[in-house]
């Protein structure tokens, strides 16, 4: 089952390598990984999605907690979180089909962020089924390139990670 884990780490060189090394060394499969600074510049937030059962999830959490540069590990709620991924799709779009593609993008709330005589680049965010559906539609026109950010997620409502505990 897919589980979303938020890992707050020190924003230092080599920390991401330590985290990913732990996953590969212990044989945990990463489904998606996204990294960026959090609300404080000295902290990075790693959002990692793993396909595993509850026992492995328990292991991942406690193994991660042993890493010196890991501050907090939290498994997000399965039912009450918001997950987003940003996808850029470059599609072949000569003038003859350009309008069709723009219309499709609009249906999916996608935005056109680049245009050339032969191509269109669409930006779309959302949950996976939405981006997959858009890509299925665009396949007809030949997708030239796709770039994904990896998923980021937060729990809904008042459920959040605070730094209070550590200071």
């Amino acid at each position: 089952m897919l589980k979303t884990i938020s890992v707050l780490v020190d924003n230092k060189a080599g920390v991401l390598a330590r985290v990913t090394n732990l996953f590969s060394r212990r044989g945990y499969n990463i489904d998606s990984l996204a990294v960026g600074t959090a609300d404080r510049t000295d902290v990075s937030r790693i959002t990692v999605i793993v396909d595993c059962d509850d026992r492995i999830l328990d292991q991942i959490v406690h193994q991660l907690e042993k890493l010196v540069n890991v501050r907090t590990v939290k498994v997000l709620s399965d039912i009450s979180n918001v997950t987003r991924e940003l996808v850029l799709i470059k599609v072949k779009a000569p003038a003859s089909v350009r309008n069709d593609i723009i219309q499709i993008a609009e249906v999916f709330r996608g935005r056109i962020i680049d245009i050339s005589t032969e191509t269109l680049t669409i930006e779309i965010t959302g949950e996976e089924h939405k981006t997959t559906a858009l890509m299925d539609m665009l396949k007809v026109y030949e997708i030239l390139e796709v770039a994904r950010t990896g998923k980021v997620a937060l729990d809904r409502g008042m459920e959040y990670i605070s730094y209070k505990d550590e200071e």
Partner: peptide
């Protein structure tokens, strides 16, 4: 003492 050893091999 190491929580990560719990359930690693045996539940």
């Amino acid at each position: 003492t190491d929580r990560a050893e719990i359930k690693k091999i045996i539940e």
